[in-house]
Design a binder for these strands. Sequence first.
DNA 1: TCCGTCACGGTTGAG
DNA 2: GACTCAACCGTGACG
Length: 366
Amino acid sequence: PRAMEQTYGEVNQLGGVFVNGRPLPNAIRLRIVELAQLGIRPCDISRQLRVSHGCVSKILARYNETGSILPGAIGGSKPRVTTPNVVKHIRDYKQGDPGIFAWEIRDRLLADGVCDKYNVPSVSSISRILRNKIGSLAQPGPYEPSKQPPPQPALPYNPIYQYPYPTPVSPTGAKMGGHPGVHGSAGHVSIPRSWPSAHSVSNILGIRTLMEQTGALAGSEGASYSPKMEEWAGVNRSAFPAAPAVNGLEKPALEADIKYTQPASGLSAVGSFLPACAYPASNQHGVYSAPAGGYLAPGPPWPPAQGPPLAPPGASVSVHSGELAAAVTFKHPSREGPDRKPPSPGSKAADALGSLHGLPLPASSS
DNA sequence: TCCGTCACGGTTGAG
DNA sequence: GACTCAACCGTGACG
């Protein structure tokens, strides 16, 4: 097992451990942002945390843009908009008016509530449907009524993809009037993924948060929802300053991150979907395993014997290597048995960051 | 020396 | 269950 774990991580040029293809632990991401907010230069952060400067730059850029330290949603596919139900409606429109234009169909799909502006097919898609699926109406197609799948609701989208519905067609039917993140409000988060999905911050910020608050997710939708870290990108974010001051670290956002990365056992509403985050606690432990401590903890502090340049005035924020190693909870397999217990709130990791933030940070967040 | 950017090899998850 | 695809990741190199 140890050999297997040792093959898991890689070591970058700075001596830091990373897992190719996987995001850095939240603790490190948080530290990057914090140190940046304290005025420490990205290059220094890079060396101190042993994370490539490209990564530091990326995380900081994202934080400045979205206010979130969390990585984006990994994997998944863009949900189809041309569902059988949509195709059926298009077919109906076409049959009712053979001369109808694609854009007219599009308008009707919107007007009839078959789709909303977030999932309505493009005109070109409609044209393609007309050409490929409806053009040969003589032949029974896959969407022939006789072969139709069971009737679908007016909005035939998988509940997993809870689109942001600012309109009365919202699945919850309540509190959908203009949630943040959809129409470019002050706190709008523009994750560069245009399609609205459960992965999109727009959706998350609005629907997810609202639904959480209203308890609407307690039902099957919540159970089937596959949340991502990105979901928390803007939770509790109201407005992110374009140029946050050193002390302007958006504590509410970070606190939200910290708060919501509590171990599932300690959470009620949010705990249920935290394990599905991009950092499953168990996975993280496995991923950032033995070598991490070996590379991070014993390593000489950077820069050697250089405190002031990195130490912010009056604050002891310099990250000691051991502290960091604890903060990122690189598991040492020799110290943790197979029956790994959930880290206690008073764990070293929590202490490491808790002492820095005055906030509890569970090890599972790393 | 610093920093933004991008290619690369990798992971992930829906279809 | 294997596969594909398109998203994401961090690293490392370049300018």
